[in-house]
């Protein structure tokens, strides 16, 4: 079992390293992640939202629905934890089979 999982992990690692050969160089200012929409946020954040911290303005203003979805995820996780861990008094025989 351990040998089989070690083989799988090594195969996944080789595939990942092979996949990084086409990635842009680390710290390249003209990489695709740094050219499309993030210069807009950096340039217009002060004018649009009057917030110097760009991360906060994107989190709460430009992408507020993303944060709303995250909050609903946290609410669902908390509710499921409460529902899983509450003590059930009536069906005690079924709990300890």
């Amino acid at each position: 079992m351990k040998f089989l999982s070690l083989i799988t992990v090594l195969l996944v690692g080789v595939a990942l390293v092979y996949g990084t050969l086409g990635m842009p160089r680390w710290g390249d200012p003209n990489s695709p992640a740094a050219t499309h929409v993030s210069p807009y946020y950096l340039e217009h954040s002060m004018h649009d939202t009057a917030t110097p911290n760009v991360v906060t303005s994107v989190l709460a203003d430009y992408r507020g629905y993303d944060t709303l979805g995250e909050t609903s995820v946290i609410f669902t996780a908390g509710m499921s934890c409460i529902l899983l861990l509450r003590k059930r008094r009536k069906h005690k025989e079924e709990d300890h089979v």
């Binding site: 740094a34 993030s38 993303d66 995250e70 934890c81």
Partner: peptide, 29 residues
């Protein structure tokens, strides 16, 4: 723009860290 780091992955990963802790809580339950 070249003076500042790219803010967009920071925002996405803020969300991802909080979701990571929520996953941890449900898995421990």
């Amino acid at each position: 723009v070249m003076q500042y780091a790219n803010p967009l992955p920071h925002v996405l990963m803020l969300t991802a860290i909080v979701v990571m802790v929520a996953t941890l809580g449900v898995a421990l339950a």
